[in-house]
Amino acid sequence: MEALRVLELYSGIGGMHQALRESQIPARVVAAIDVNTVANEVYKYNFPHTQLLPKTIEGVTIEEFDRLSFNMVLMSPPCQPFTRIGLQGDVTDPRTKSFLYFLDILPRLQKLPTYILLENVKGFEVSSTRDLLIQTIENCGFQYQEFLLSPTSLGIPNSRLRYFLIAKLQSEPLSFQAPGQVLMEFPKFESEYPQEHAVHEEQTTEEKKVELNICFDSNTQHSQKEAFLFKLETAEEIARKFQQDSDLSVQMLKDFLEDDIDMNQYFLPPESLLRYALLLDIVKPTCRRSTCFTKGYGRYIEGTGSVLQTSEDVQIESIYKSLTGLSQEEKITKLLMLKLRYFTPKEIANLLGFPPEFGFPEKIGVKQRYRLLGNSLNVHVVAKLIKILCGKL
């Protein structure tokens, strides 16, 4: 096929661009547009030859869009107007303005793009903004399909449930199209391996409220009755997590961890251990799951992502059971035995599917890296959707 001319909107650190590369679809990103100056530095560091426009979407005129002559649009509009922990301002949120501007521009372009791929948070699928998007692309003649997908469906031990829409300008329905449905798994094709499995709703930890968990070592048999229940954690949740860790189609976390680096800066400080001991989502390298990493990781504890127990020979149940009645100093001493640390930015990038050569400029600090990665997407999931959209699966 002739190389596609791709427009990347809300380009961030380049997750869409990276997915396009991974898909191996002949393509060139003719322009990337983002207003975030720090994200743009990371983008330029990794894609130095791509035209990057540091401006708002609404700062681009229809004439400028036409001159780019693109036939594919990849975009991940701001998710804050639709996230469950936000105000859910939807179309009234100022951060939606740029996307509404693009929807207004789209039908008036000299030449419509052939392909569109959009990513956002779960919650977007029930928004008024989504309804306007669907109305716009239907009026333009696109066939489309919506998905809610998590990387666990590709064997990646990280729950990151996200909304996706793929659309193609054609009169015939897509071969896998399910009108009115939001699919919870990738469509199946004869060329694919049978061992690929669907997204299981019980595996999407984002769907749960902030939960406290324990990872059972895959070599240890624990029954539901034997499990020690943490505050806010039910026996049902523990059983579900144990089931996740028993799913051999998902890789272990240790395959994504860094070796031979100084971990001292990543260990949780004593005051955090004491204050948030019962709110930590703790996993071991042998686990096959981790919760969604958000932009607040490294700054906040509650609900921002899993922490890693690096002292694997210490039984977490015995540590927690022994805390009752201890002084604060004694509790800290016990908790420090677990050697709990944050995942490094590189490890999170690995879980998100960024390749080994992907990096950050040295001046970008650790907390800035966490923030940028928390706003990014899973490269492998998007790469597969691009191949499906272009008929290469």
Rank of each mutant, 00 (worst) to 15 (best):
M1S: 14
V6D: 00
L9R: 00
Y10W: 03
G12A: 03
I13G: 00
L20C: 05
E22K: 15
P26K: 08
V29T: 12
V30N: 08
V30W: 11
I33E: 01
D34P: 03
K44M: 03
Y45C: 07
Y45D: 02
N46D: 02
N46T: 03
L52E: 05
T56D: 07
T56N: 13
V60T: 14
I62N: 06
E63M: 03
E64N: 01
D66Q: 03
L68M: 14
S69W: 07
F70W: 03
M72E: 03
M72H: 06
M75C: 06
P77K: 00
Q80T: 08
Q80N: 07
T83Y: 01
I85V: 14
I85C: 08
Q88Y: 02
G89C: 02
V91S: 12
Y101P: 04
F102R: 00
F102S: 02
D104T: 08
L106S: 05
P113V: 05
T114Q: 13
T114D: 13
T114E: 14
I116V: 10
L117S: 02
L118W: 06
N120R: 00
N120P: 02
G123K: 00
S128Q: 15
I137Q: 10
E138W: 06
L148V: 09
L148C: 11
G155T: 02
N158T: 11
E172T: 14
G180E: 03
G180Y: 04
E185W: 04
F186E: 00
F186C: 02
Y193W: 11
P194K: 12
H197D: 10
E201T: 14
T205L: 15
E207F: 14
V210S: 13
N219D: 11
T220M: 06
T220Q: 06
Q224W: 14
F228C: 09
E233V: 07
E233Q: 15
E233F: 05
T234M: 04
D245R: 06
D262R: 09
M263D: 15
N264Y: 09
F267K: 05
E271L: 11
L273G: 08
R275C: 07
R275L: 10
Y276N: 07
L278Q: 14
L279G: 10
L280E: 06
D281R: 13
V283M: 04
T286P: 01
K295Y: 09
R299I: 10
R299L: 13
I301A: 14
E302P: 04
T304M: 12
S306P: 05
S306R: 06
D313K: 12
K321V: 05
E329I: 07
T333N: 11
M337N: 09
M337T: 14
F343A: 04
I348E: 00
P356S: 08
E357I: 11
P361I: 01
E362Q: 10
K363G: 04
K363W: 08
G365P: 06
G365T: 15
G365L: 11
K367D: 11
R369V: 04
Y370D: 08
N378Q: 09
V382P: 07
A383Q: 03
K384M: 07
L385K: 02
K387F: 02
I388S: 00
K392L: 13
